[in-house]
C-alpha cells in the first residue's frame, strides 16, 4: 500500500515535470516561429499580434488538456457571459493558483495580460509575451499603455490582488484594476476561480499536487459598469478607492457563496 502511494507520487511528479517542460518548449517554439516570420513584410502588425495570441490561446488549451489527461488537474468552465460581453473590458479574477492565467488564456482567444519581469525576461516565455503585445508590469507607463489598448477594444486581464490569494476569506485588492477602469470608463468582467482542494498556491511546489488533481471551476459573472457601483462624478482618486472596495466585497461575497456550496459535496 505504502509502495503504491509512493509509485503514484513518482508518476505524478514525472508527469507534472513533463507537462511543464512541454509548456516551456511550446512557448519557446511559438516565440521563435514568429520571430522568424517577423521580417516578412506582408503580415501587418495587428494581424501578427492576432495570430500570436491565437497560438498562445491554443497552446494553453492544449497544456490544460494534457494536464487533465495525466490526472493533474480537473476543470469546468462556465464563461458564456464573458464571451458575449462587449469588448474593451477588463477581466478580473481572484488568484488561487499558479495556472489561473493559463486557464483564462485557454478560454479567451484574444486577451491582453500583464506580465511580470520573471516571465518577460525568461528565455522560454520572453519572446512570445513580447510579440503578443502584452504589458510588462514594471513599465513606467503601464496605465497609459493599458488605457490605449482598452480604448482600441482589447480585453485586458488583471489579477487585482497582485499576487496569489492566500486565504479565500481574505481578499485584498490593489488599485490597478480600478485605475484602468476609471481612466477609460471600461466595464469589468469578473471571473470567479474556484480551486478545490487548494493547490499550486504561492510557496507551494509545482509538483505538490493532491491525488486526482485540484478541481478548477471558472465562472464568469455579469459585466459590471462603473455607473452600477460608484459615483462617477467624484474626484478620480475617490473613484479608485470606492471601486476597489466595491470589488473586494464583491469577491468576498462570491467566494463565501461558493465555499458554502462546496462544503457539503466534499463530505
Amino acid at each position: 500500500m505504502m509502495q503504491l502511494t509512493r509509485l503514484r507520487k513518482v508518476w505524478q511528479i514525472s508527469s507534472a515535470a513533463f507537462c511543464y517542460f512541454l509548456f516551456g518548449l511550446g512557448a519557446l517554439i511559438v516565440g521563435i516561429f514568429f520571430r522568424l516570420l517577423s521580417p516578412l513584410p506582408f503580415i501587418p502588425a495587428a494581424k501578427r499580434q492576432h495570430m500570436i495570441r491565437w497560438s498562445v490561446h491554443k497552446g494553453c488549451l492544449t497544456f490544460i488538456r494534457i494536464m487533465r489527461f495525466f490526472g493533474l488537474i480537473r476543470y469546468t468552465f462556465d464563461v458564456d457571459s464573458m464571451k458575449q460581453a462587449r469588448t474593451g473590458h477588463i477581466v478580473i479574477a481572484n488568484h488561487p493558483s499558479l495556472i489561473d492565467v493559463v486557464l483564462l488564456l485557454a478560454v479567451n482567444e484574444q486577451m491582453c495580460c500583464f506580465v511580470k519581469s520573471a516571465v518577460w525576461e525568461s528565455i522560454f516565455t520572453g519572446a512570445v509575451v513580447r510579440q503578443a503585445g502584452y504589458i510588462p508590469n514594471n513599465a513606467e507607463q503601464v496605465l497609459p499603455m493599458a488605457a490605449a489598448k482598452l480604448e482600441a477594444g482589447e480585453n485586458i486581464l488583471i489579477f487585482p490582488e497582485g499576487t496569489r490569494t492566500k486565504e479565500d476569506s481574505v481578499i485584498r485588492f490593489k488599485r490597478g484594476a480600478a485605475n484602468m477602469a476609471v481612466a477609460v470608463n471600461a466595464a469589468i468582467m469578473p471571473i470567479v476561480i474556484e480551486c478545490h482542494p487548494r493547490a499550486l498556491k504561492k510557496g507551494d511546489k509545482w509538483y505538490d499536487i493532491p491525488p486526482g488533481g485540484p478541481k478548477f471551476k471558472l465562472t464568469s459573472k455579469n459585466l459590471i459598469t462603473l455607473e452600477d457601483c460608484i459615483d462617477t462624478s467624484l474626484p478620480r482618486p475617490k473613484q479608485y478607492r470606492q471601486l476597489t472596495s466595491y470589488l473586494e466585497s464583491y469577491y468576498e461575497r462570491q467566494l463565501i457563496a461558493v465555499s458554502d456550496t462546496n462544503i457539503p459535496s466534499e463530505k
Partner: peptide, 13 residues
C-alpha cells in the same frame, strides 16, 4: 496610501 497614479490627480488638483 497615495500612489503614483493618485499623485497625477493630486498634481492636477
Amino acid at each position: 496610501d497615495i500612489d503614483s497614479i493618485d499623485a497625477v490627480d493630486l498634481l492636477i488638483d
